[in-house]
Design a protein around this nucleic acid. Structure first.
Ligand code: SF4
Ligand code: SF4
Lengths: 164, 164
DNA sequence: CTATTTCGGATATATTATATCCGCAATTAT
DNA sequence: ATAATTGCGGATATAATATATCCGAAATAG
């Protein structure tokens, strides 16, 4: 019952792409360097985002990853599900039907209250995640990131992208 | 991002204890037989419930597990946290501070919008789980369990507990 | 066309979850 | 007292998953 480590990386990468000029492409090498993360494994996370249709890829020189649509159209839920999967957290194995007191399958018509309650809580969680999109996250980030860092980062990218 | 398998077992066991006459004690051997589950591993789950103070234990002959308080005072959240732990699902590793553009720690005052949004969704999930208690679950179960199975189960327990 | 860049699937390793086993302590029935 | 029952905790074995890396194929710039 926990998120994979790559989730933080993926969301940060999306957030960064959303903060840069629209259409910007960043290769995994640059992303990894910027966040000081293992490049090959970060690329795996980006691959998942790509498969989910959240980012587009451009191969070859000056290629990389870019957002596939406006940041306001990318929800937190979409990113979470791209990285951690969209399977239900609770998987019922129907143990009530087993054991010496189980009866024929046709007598069980719908999921029990246990499963329904757990799934309802999951739904509340997903609903909350779906209320937040990348644009929201960037608005918040803009407000809370130290100005020193914003300046430093802009300069760093200018040098890196120009030098290439 | 998923519940452990034992969660279903643990909740079913609690539900069963709540359905039987108050004060009933069931040993892990009987529970495992009733649900057709591996006894040793089910016992591990019951141990967690015991450590969390949800069930009480009685050692020795005619001992076993019994609810530690009325079923209306045991919430679904308490059982979930007893089995799957109460740690936050999202653990931020503060990658924004790393890399070539990080600045001194004192400039970061509070968790960012990413972490806050994910934690807020978790809170909604926990809140929903906290609305449901064992008594609710049993009410639902009573209504949806095939009457044939209820009769069968009662008879089974009568024989088992009398025969012992 | 060719050299370079970059993604993406296949592969390896580490960590965690699942499952079992056994000795010990506590309790009870006889 | 004694023997039988039962939970507890640690040690262990196995299966599943998460983490990390490698290398070939695809795409592009020149
Ligand atoms: S009673 Fe509910 S949780 Fe249990 S096996 Fe059936 S659907 Fe699953
Ligand atoms: S910016 Fe947010 S998610 Fe990223 S490291 Fe900081 S607190 Fe964690």
């Amino acid at each position: 019952m926990k998120h994979s480590e790559g989730l933080e990386w993926a969301i940060h990468s999306c957030s960064l792409l959303a903060a840069l000029p629209p259409g910007t492409c960043l290769p995994s090498k640059l992303l990894a360097e910027f966040f000081d993360l293992p490049e090959a494994y970060l690329a795996k996370q980006m691959q998942k985002l790509s498969q989910a249709g959240i980012v587009e890829t451009r191969r070859g020189p000056r290629g990389g990853y870019g957002l596939a649509r406006p940041s306001a159209d990318i929800t937190l839920l979409q990113m979470v599900e791209a990285i951690d999967g969209d399977a239900q957290h609770f998987r019922c194995t129907e143990i009530r039907r087993c054991g010496p007191t189980g009866v024929a399958n046709r007598h069980y018509t719908r999921p029990c209250g246990i499963a329904r309650s757990l799934w309802k809580a999951e739904a509340a969680w997903r609903e909350e995640l779906n209320k937040v999109n990348l644009a929201d996250i960037n608005r918040m980030g803009q407000a809370e990131t130290p100005p020193e860092q914003i300046a430093k980062a802009l300069k760093w990218f200018q040098e890196k992208l120009a030098g290439a």
